[in-house]
């Protein structure tokens, strides 16, 4: 079911697991901020953070021997796709749930695409 991590890969595993989530947060944060403050110039940075996330996921997959089995490879793919789409989905939800706000309350928001 699982193949334990090699000693030499210990640091890589912990570090990449942490960076998955940190890049994920960075991506989500930059993505949301770019949209909320209408600063499209931030968007490339957000995707750069996603690239960092993707690199971390793959590094984690290699170091933790996840590619040696179909199931764990699937988990890696799930993370790659899921974390890419999650901020988009959540953003749409934010906009969607705030649409019926009275005009006085709403601030200028870039429209979702």
């Amino acid at each position: 079911m699982i193949e334990p991590v090699e000693l030499a890969n210990f640091f890589t595993v912990f570090f990449s697991a942490a960076s998955v989530i940190l890049f994920g947060a960075g991506y989500a944060l930059l993505f949301a901020w770019s949209r909320v403050s209408a600063r499209p110039r931030l968007m490339p940075l957000a995707y750069a953070a996603y690239l960092g996330l993707a690199a971390s996921v793959i590094t984690l997959g290699l170091a933790a021997n996840l590619f040696n089995s179909g199931f764990w490879t699937f988990i890696v793919l799930l993370m790659l796709v899921g974390y890419l789409l999650a901020p988009h989905a959540v953003w749409h939800l934010c906009v969607g749930t705030h649409t019926d706000a009275p005009a006085a309350e709403s601030v200028k928001l870039t429209q979702p695409r």
Binding site: L93, V95, G96, T97, T99, D100, A101, A103, S106, L109
Partner: peptide
């Protein structure tokens, strides 16, 4: 932002 009707998936 003039929409007044909530989208079903955001309701």
């Amino acid at each position: 932002m003039s929409q007044t009707q909530t989208l079903w998936w955001a309701s």
